[in-house]
């Protein structure tokens, strides 16, 4: 299986503090991966590097079959080639309707002139309706996103991610602040999504990770500490030391 994303030997420092230390990571085209690690392990910085927000001091990040380097691309360009990111806090455009949010995310040319000439086709309309229905917001298309509940916003954001049709999804703590039922629904959905594309989930909640039933990468102090199934890594003494050693 060729890797969709290949991160190798990446390091980055902030004011002398090594946030990421010679980190290597790769993920296949249709794979679900969970990343766990204590606070300050470098999970967010890792995602920042992939999405172009932070430039690493050294190392390489390559993408796709033709191994394009992501290091010289802007955030927007990286998003356009097919990497979607979901933040921990739901970030939807609260002043716009659910439909407008989805249309914004819908895969389409992104330059200003295309936006000026944009016409919503029947196909697009159907896609918006389908995405909304998929996340249970079918009845809320005309509502402003700001009026939605916290969970609904999470769902809307996931729908927006899907509308982008990314090949790789980076998801930061999707379960945070969700009810038990919602968690189950989310789990099912993530597993479903990962059948056709790569999904990286950053999560604290071990129970949630267990339910995802996928390969797990443990980050610690900016480097990969262990990788494998959840059972495999939880038996790893180094992981136990990091997680349990601190109480």
């Amino acid at each position: 299986m060729t890797a969709l994303l290949e991160v190798s030997g990446v390091s980055v420092s902030f004011d002398g503090f090594r946030a990421i230390n010679n980190l290597s990571f790769s993920i296949g085209a249709a794979e679900l991966r969970a990343i766990i690690g204590p606070n300050g392990a470098g999970k967010t910085t890792f995602m920042d590097i992939i999405t172009g927000k932070t430039r690493p001091d050294s190392g390489s990040v390559t993408w796709g079959e033709r191994a394009i380097s992501l290091l010289n691309l802007s955030e927007a360009a990286i998003a356009r080639i097919g990497i979607g990111r979901k933040f921990q806090r739901p970030t939807v455009f609260e002043d716009q309707t659910v439909a407008e949010n989805l249309i914004l995310a819908l895969k389409s040319p992104r330059n200003p002139f295309a936006a000026l000439a944009f016409v919503l086709t029947g196909e697009g309309r159907a896609r918006v309706a389908a995405l909304a229905a998929q996340v249970g917001l079918g009845a809320h298309l005309a509502r402003k996103a700001g009026e939605l509940s916290h969970g609904q916003k999470q769902w809307l954001e996931i729908a927006m991610l899907l509308a982008q049709e990314p090949r790789l999804l980076l998801i930061d703590e999707p379960a945070a602040g969700m009810t038990l039922a919602e968690r189950e629904q989310t789990t099912a959905m993530l597993v479903g999504i990962a059948r056709t594309r790569a999904v990286v989930v950053v999560e604290h909640d071990m129970e949630f990770v267990r339910r995802l039933n996928c390969r797990v990468t443990v980050l610690h102090e900016g480097a990969v500490l262990a990788e494998g199934s959840l059972d495999h890594v939880t038996r790893n003494p180094a992981v136990i030391e990091v997680y349990l050693g601190r109480g």
Partner: peptide, 20 residues
């Protein structure tokens, strides 16, 4: 859609960037 993008930039520029 232009207006929608502009208002989105106004409200959360970084998010718009991650939409591509």
């Amino acid at each position: 859609k232009m207006g929608s993008v502009l208002r989105a930039i106004r409200d959360d520029e970084a998010r718009v960037r991650f939409l591509g």
